[in-house]
Amino acid sequence: MAVLSQLIANGLIAGSIYALMAAGFSMMFSIQRFMNIAHGATYVVGAFSAYLFAKIIGWPFWIAFPIAIAVATLLGILINHIVFEPLQKEKDKNLALLLASFGMFLLIESIILMIFGADVKSFGLPVERGMDILGAIITPLQLIIIITAPVVFIGIWLFLKKTLVGKALRATSDNTVIAATMGINIRAMTFISTGLGSALAGLAGILVALEQNLEHSMGMSAILKGLTAAIVGGIGNVPAAILGGYLIGLAENLGIWYLPSGYKDAISFVILIIFLLFRPQGFFGMKKREEVAE
């Protein structure tokens, strides 16, 4: 029983991070309609900015972390404005955008490597004693991760459901062309979704950096898990992507009850392949109707 509780707790911790990545990824995808690999770079920048401000400069966490999230947000918006927006006008935009986002990911990762070096970094927080919660041993930091993610998700849900801008984002995600004919500025919606999505990646980066270590190469694994979760949940649908994140986190951790822990990644990618083959719209996704017929 204690093992099961521990695996569920580990699944929730991993799932919280995956869900944050997936929610951000999905939020951007729902408007821009391409796989933004550079989302992994904003995650790394969030983590390293927090490390720079809190550990190297020595600012208190409550100042350092919001600024680190703001840096990640700004980076996401800038990449979109400088690189993706001009490419959206191209004829073969999907491939161009995918390659450009991958290029931006590699570029930013290299810049982080140049600035911070290749060695593994740590916030060096004191090791805290875990608490026994329903048989699972959870550290205070892990508990913060488990609680922070749902609080953020409730905030996102309220924003999307209750505010006019949130409704406009959902309408744009449903049908960009028709949303524009209602007077919605699609460029503004892209700006908002990119900013929010990048902020979520920045937050995920900080939480992982606090709990584990920092490496310049940490972004690829995060974007792959975020992407997997978004597809499994239902790509372009933020609540579905969040649930997909928890689903993948729990499946990976419950899976290693029977399999060696080295198979963790394999479990999520097998689930991804199964979904791509048999339910490409995702667990909670609906098939979309066509855009305006010609």
């Binding site: 006019l164 409704k167 406009a168 959902r170 309408a171 995600s173 449903d174 049908n175 062309v177 028709i178 949303a179 004919t181 209602m182 007077g183 919605i184 649908n237 609906m286 979309k288 109707r289 066509e290 855009e291 305006v292 017929a293």
Partner: peptide, 21 residues
């Protein structure tokens, strides 16, 4: 638009809200 392209995931009232954006 042709094909009654309402915003599927929004409620009826939310669709009208967007109509009066």
């Amino acid at each position: 638009p042709q094909g009654r392209l309402v915003f599927d995931s929004l409620s009826v009232e939310e669709n009208l809200d967007i109509g009066g954006y």
